[in-house]
């Protein structure tokens, strides 16, 4: 049986990470501008126009594509930065833009009809009718699926739509439907949708209380660690809380998604592209994870079982999960 070709879509937070990803075998690299127009608006990260132009050159010379994420929701009365980001991506001939906001999709479709459009995971299009909306109105060529669907549901969905789908296979894991979560802004005022950052570092504090290290987000304690326990970044939905008299990682343990072993099933399910999360991670992460997935995808293409990956060290809390892709997670 010949397996449909899977495209490997890899993160780049800096030009160095872009080169690492391309060198490690990425088919596509996705990135964002250095402002609030993308969902990884973190200090010290992302690309200016010159870096994007250079990154495009580097990738194109080596046969890789560059996708520009402009996937936050433009501020009312101030669409300028988002429009300019789309204009720049078009002018520099990026291979596609990844958009979430309907108004911005409308702008891109009208202003740059030749610029390929992908639907961001932040739009959370989880069913055939939602996807039809974006295909019919904005001619999106690919939909990044939210992490709410099992592999069986993805397979069923792909039979009902005529557009490419891209799914997350590794990295940080939103446990809420993406683009539909205001937990961060509730605690900090900074929101993934508006500001491009979740649980922002500007609102993170660690307090050493002697017998325990407390991590706080804004005014709220998100976790506390005993002296010898590995500490974690206080991402809100990976915190420890109390409910019904019990203390637990109620939303999700500190863990990362890893679908290395499920790649053949995803190929079967009709998925076009596999996405690795982690634009905020270093190039050591990018190089190692992309290389491992390159080998795994090549194995799948050759009809072989993908090798084990040993990427636990790059996972949050050194734990891995197949997450929502298996029904028991729910």
């Amino acid at each position: 049986m010949t397996c449909p070709s899977l495209e490997l879509v890899c993160p780049a937070g800096t030009p160095a990470a872009l080169r690492s990803a391309v060198d490690a075998g990425a088919d596509c690299v996705y990135l964002g501008f250095r402002d609030e127009t993308n969902a990884r608006n973190f200090p010290g990260l992302n690309f200016n126009n010159r870096e994007l132009a250079e990154g495009l050159d580097y990738a194109h010379q080596r046969g890789a594509k560059v996708l520009v994420a402009i996937n936050t929701y433009p501020e009312a009365g101030n669409p300028g930065p988002w429009y300019r980001a789309v204009d720049t991506a078009a002018a520099l001939e990026a291979d596609a833009v990844i958009l979430a906001d309907i108004g911005l999709l409308d702008y891109a479709t009208t202003t740059h009809p030749g610029l390929r459009r992908h639907l961001s995971v932040q739009a959370s299009a989880s069913n055939p009718e939602a996807i039809r909306f974006y295909v019919e109105n904005f001619d999106v060529k690919r939909v990044v699926l939210p992490r709410v669907l099992t592999v069986a549901e993805i397979a069923a969905l792909n039979k009902q739509i005529k557009v490419e789908t891209e799914v997350f296979v590794f990295g940080g894991l939103c446990v809420m439907a993406e683009g539909r979560c205001a937990l961060s802004s509730y605690a900090t005022g900074i929101s993934p949708n508006k500001n491009g950052a979740c649980s922002p570092a500007s609102h993170v504090h660690y307090e050493d209380e002697g017998d325990r290290l407390v991590s706080k987000l804004g005014d709220f304690t998100i976790n506390a660690f005993d002296t010898n326990e590995p500490a974690g970044y206080p991402t809100l939905c990976k915190g420890r809380f109390m409910a019904g008299g019990k203390t637990s990682y109620l939303f999700e343990e500190p863990t990362s998604l890893s679908l290395g072993t499920m790649l053949p099933e995803l190929a079967e399910a009709g998925v076009t592209a596999l996405k690795i999360e982690g634009r905020q991670r270093g190039r050591a992460y990018v190089a190692a994870v992309v290389q491992a997935f390159r080998q795994a995808v090549d194995a799948v293409h050759a009809g072989q079982t993908p090798p084990l990956m040993n990427l636990e060290n790059f996972s949050e809390g050194q734990q891995e999960t197949t997450g929502v892709y298996e029904k028991t997670w729910r």
Partner: peptide
């Protein structure tokens, strides 16, 4: 070494402005 991995292990201590 991946920044996050180090950052979040207790090997590295951070005080003050995390950003």
């Amino acid at each position: 070494l991946d920044g996050d991995a180090m950052f979040f292990s207790r090997k590295l201590e951070i005080e003050g402005d995390t950003e």
